[in-house]
Structures are given as C-alpha cells and as structure tokens.
Design a protein around this nucleic acid. Structure first.
Lengths: 262, 262
DNA sequence: AAGTGGTCTAGACCACTAT
DNA sequence: TAGTGGTCTAGACCACTTT
C-alpha cells in the first residue's frame, strides 16, 4: 500500500533523494525522539548498530550524531554511548531576527539622520573608545522607521581619524542595514553587544512617538577593527511594544510529512 | 631558536597533541583571519591545497572548514570556494548564561515559595494552556534571591491533572534550578520563550525591593509535554539593573600563545 | 575482553562554477 | 575542461567505560 511505503520512507534513508544521507539519518533520529520513541536520558543505539540498521558507513552515522549534538538534542559520552538530552534553559539563545526583519525590506524601512557632528570625548566616551578625554569624536543620531512608524533611535560615537576611512562609510545610512544583513564593512573584526531594560527619556519618547517612562530595550554595541582598536560605540533604543526577543528550546513540531528542507 | 619553533607550531599541526587535527587546523585558519592574513570577502586556499599544506586528509580539512562555517567565520560556495564572512549582526545570539549563573550555586541562591494554590482558568490562561475557561489550574509564585538579594519574581500556571504527575515535581523549588542546568524533568519536550521590556508594578517592586516603574525584563515561557500539550505557562520578572544579556560577534581575541582548550 | 564513541585515512563520485 | 566544494565509503587505530 502507498501508506506503508510512505511509512517505510520515514524510517529509512532514501538514496535517490537530494537530501544527504547524514541529514536524513539525523532527521529520522530527531523524529523518533520527538515521537517519544527515545526519551530524555535514554541511550540511542550504538553507532555500529545504526550503521547496520540504516546501511551507511560509520562516518555518515558519526556526522548525523554530531549534527544532533550541535543542535543540543543528544549528548555523547565516550565509552558509554549517546544519550537524549533533557530540556535545558541554559542553552537557549535569543537572536536578532526581528530586528533584522526591520532592515531587510528597504521599501518599508527608512533611516533618518537626525544629527552628525564632531564632539569632544568625555570621560565615558574616552573609556569606551580608548581615546583621550577631549579628543575629537564623531557623534551620530539616527531614527529608524518602519512603515513610517518611528521604531528605533540610534546613538553612536565614532573614532575621528583621517587615517581611518571607515568613518566616511559609517555615516551612510545604509551602513546599519549592511551590519544586520551580513554586508557590513570588512574593516570590522568583532563586536560586543548587550541588551538592557530601560525606560524612555522625555526626549526619546518624543522622537519615538511614545511616552516618557515607557519600557524599552537598550542594545549597546562596541565594534573593533582588525587591530583590536574600538571604532564605534553606541546603542539602539527601542520601545518594548515594538520588539520582542523570542526563542525555542527542545524539539519543535516535527513535520513528519516528509517535505524536508535543509 | 625556541621562538621560531613556537612560531612554527602555531602554523602547523602538532600530531602529538591531544587536540584533534581538525580542531588545530580550524584554530590556525581562525587565527590567520583574526590576524588579517585573510580579510572578509577573501577566498581561503582550496581544500586540496590545505590538504597538502598541512598534511592531512580531505575529510580532516573538510571537518575543520565545517567548524568555521558553524561558527559563522566563513561561508562555502560550491564550485567557487570558501570565503571569509564579514560581521553580521543578524546572526548574533544572546544566551541565558547570567540567569543560569544565578541558579548554579545552591549556596548563594534561595528560592522562596510565596504562593501556591488552585485557581480557575481565566480566558487568557485557558488560551495559553489549552484548557477551558474555569478549569482548575495551579498557580505558583516564587521569589528567587541571590546572596540574600531578591532578584527574580516568578509566576507560573500549571495544568491541574491528577493523571499527570508532573505537577507534583514542579512544585519543588529545585525544579527551576534543574531547568537551567539541564536536569529538568524528562517529561518536557519543548518550550517557547520570549523576552520583553517592562516596568515593575507596585507589587513587584515591593517583593524585589526596587521601585515602581523601574525598568525590568519579562521572560515569558510555555512548556509542552511529549504529546505537545501545554503544561506550564509563566514568566520571570527581573529588574534591569540585576541582569543583562550579552553577546559577542566576530573573531574574539585569539589567544595565540598556544594554550588551546576545546 | 568487549563494546562504546573519537579521530583519521586515501581515495571515490557528484554537482557546481569558471574559463 | 579544470578546479571547487559536498558527500560517502570501508576500513584503521585510539581512549574510554563496563563487565
């Protein structure tokens, strides 16, 4: 019957498929765990058993298992076996997908440059950017709107150094979009980010068309160049009702219908 | 000289080391990128070239490259080559390490059960937990302190079902700790989490020894069992000055001194 | 001693991209 | 056509855990 054949394909590897064998095997094991066939703490069949059962080489089994380890689904213990992991909130990670979405669509996103001027570094700016107090820095303020609605306020201090051409490009309003879409300036080596809870100041509320004291996120950032010198320090302010960070943990709804996509 | 030998070992693979060859190769390439030897957008040497250069088999090179791909350092394009990725804020992820730290040390953390009672499901509770309005649910309120300082307030609604023994164990104050340290109840299959910005209510401020209107994080959670039925819905409230979410992006300071640890 | 995961080899074949 | 990454094989050897 068609039914039994479909059933069959869900628990065996289709060598004619474009989906690699290791990915198919990983998906099979994941689905079996999600279905309760293996429960948290249970031991999975040994790798040699999986080789026989699914007719693949040790390296292929190994790669499938490694996939599941990377995804936090199982944990391996040398000499003992491979075990299903229980839920672990400690490994949850929250992404900036929603923030990214704001910038992805150029049609709906607009970045308005509110201010851009040279300023003298205060003690705090000097500490963050690694420059002497009083040294000239560039201060930028931007307002990012989505569908015409002010959503994010951005403040940024940049190193002012004629020898470093980065500042010119950073002034471009498209620089922000690039940062979130992987087309950033190739002069940046790394960054440090932090999310804090805050409330809007009177001025921020005015720009963001919200009210003073409304809850908001503050996303602070410092970027470094390849000489490990700070280049940019700043922060995004976003009202709490216009952004949330979401994450999932554990095995999500396995679509057992077979339409797998990598 | 000793110096040149140390230099040598940094750019070649030490077969006597306990660090696997693929990890050493990945580290070598990462260090070269961090040092500016390869810049964002640059193409890495082809895999066959890397085989010759470092004297390892194709599979080993492949695995090293895959590591870097997983870490977001490079991107591979079939038929073209492997390229160094520029900074990409869109891939940043924030973890709950700081939250986890609060629970890791039983000596310094205490969980006080403020309230635990049966209550009738309101429309909102019913929607979140998938039960009918008026159905009995368990309401729990906990106060988590660190070094005697109230830090997190937790509210949670649990399915009340004598057939599901989970509720008994969930009442234990240690259940929270287990969730954050990977020793959670094995009856939970998955969870959904969201971080929002909020401000403390008058009541929350009293418990947390803060002030009304102070900025705070609200971490909402829903947990599901292996039948995909909601089991728990609740949220943590934490004043913004006692928690921050941090993340790094790009290549962190490569410790080129050689003391690698996996 | 037997079984487990961890690493590695030296090729093979394929799909894709560039020229 | 040549070069690239992508997958896979059928073993080998090792370190570790359990019996």
């Amino acid at each position: 019957m068609e039914k039994s054949k479909a059933q069959e394909s869900r628990w065996s590897i289709d060598r004619s498929s474009y989906v690699p064998a290791y990915a198919q095997l990983a998906q099979i094991l994941r689905a079996q765990i999600a279905a309760g066939r293996f429960r948290p703490g249970d031991r999975l069949p040994s790798e040699s058993q999986l080789c026989e059962r699914y007719g693949v080489s040790p390296m292929t089994v190994r790669r499938a298992i490694n996939l599941l380890v990377d995804q936090g689904v199982v944990v391996t213990e040398q000499g003992r076996g491979t075990f299903v992991r229980p839920l672990d909130l400690g490994t949850v990670s929250f992404g900036l997908e929603e923030l990214r979405r704001l910038f992805r669509d150029p049609e709906r996103t607009s970045v308005r440059l509110l201010e851009a001027r040279i300023t003298s570094a205060t003690e705090r700016i000097g500490r963050k950017l690694g420059v002497r107090v009083g040294q000239r820095t560039i201060f930028i303020r931007r307002l990012i709107s989505y569908d015409g609605k002010p959503t994010i306020l951005h403040r940024e201090y940049l190193i002012y150094d004629p020898a470093r051409p980065i500042v010119e490009a950073e002034l471009e309003v498209t620089a922000l979009r690039g940062l979130l879409n992987g087309q950033s300036l190739s002069t940046l080596k790394r960054g440090e980010l932090a999310i804090e809870a805050t409330v809007l100041t009177e001025e921020e509320a005015r720009f963001l068309e919200s009210r003073t004291g409304a809850p908001a996120f503050r996303l602070e950032h410092v970027f470094y160049d390849f000489e490990d010198r700070p280049v940019s320090w700043g922060w995004f302010i976003c009202p709490g009702d216009r952004l949330r960070f979401t994450a999932v943990v554990g095995l999500q709804g396995e679509r057992t219908t077979g339409n797998e996509r990598e």
